[in-house]
Design a binder for these strands. Structure first.
Lengths: 130, 130
DNA sequence: TTCCTTGCAAATCGTTTGCATAATG
DNA sequence: CATTATGCAAACGATTTGCAAGGAA
């Protein structure tokens, strides 16, 4: 069960740190492959899953059928553009109050929530107006 | 493109109306099969997708890797039990205010949000205390 | 008769896993 | 040396799709 160092995992971590656009496993694979041409998709998945389980990454299920990964683990919200699918961070404090609001008419324990905001991103707004 | 009547689709719709627990395609399949033993999973998926696209059903991606379907199309929130995976409705008015809050520091258009509340349902709370 | 819908099976997609080998501690 | 990690390919589960046959308008 003890964790052992691996260059591949380190490269994956480092790549994730450089990106704030929440890449998918495939994107990570494509990029880490530049440094490790033989790395396999399986290894990428294994490490992304491992890091997520350890809490070093967030696995985001934004509803597009593909998992996205996020190296920013401090609580924050996400926005997904309906046009281009881009996933971006939002500056918005955690809304603990909505858990309470939801709990008022509910007979169980609410620990938290996951919220995704949808709409059109700045870039796509410009596209459509041109 | 014109829609034609089909008994299978009707049976799927009717089954969905009777359930407020957000069944998966497989559950729909198992049940509709009682009336139509020859119906195929493909047909179930085709109709659930069709109905969702027409807005007669909601397709919920609650994060467990399986799509859930909901015949209640008026806006409402959902709760997912971490223990048993049950998906239940919450009585909570649409929080338009959080879209505004999210939009304050964001340069794009926010149309809405999807929120899932997580925790332990009433039933599982009792289980664990016994 | 037109063309939408079905059942079936094969295909697809994202993700996970088994296994022999390589790397780490 | 003991054990974890890798690459590869096969397996997986959920969902979609191509196609020939059936049913609705």
């Amino acid at each position: 069960m003890a964790l052992k160092y691996s260059r591949q995992r380190e490269a994956i971590k480092e790549f994730m740190m450089t990106r704030k656009d929440h890449p998918t496993a495939d994107v990570v694979y494509m990029n880490v492959r530049k440094e490790f041409p033989n790395i396999s998709l399986g290894t990428v998945y294994r490490n992304l899953t491992l890091l997520s389980d350890m809490g070093e990454l967030l696995r985001l299920r934004v509803g597009d059928g593909v998992d996205h990964f996020d190296a920013t683990i401090t609580p924050h919200y996400h926005f997904i553009c309906k046009e281009c699918g881009a996933v971006t961070d939002l500056e918005l404090d955690t809304m603990h109050s909505i858990d309470e609001a939801a709990g008022e008419s509910f007979h169980g324990r609410i620990d938290g929530h996951v919220t995704y905001f949808y709409g059109t991103c700045e870039h796509c707004l410009k596209e459509s107006s041109s």
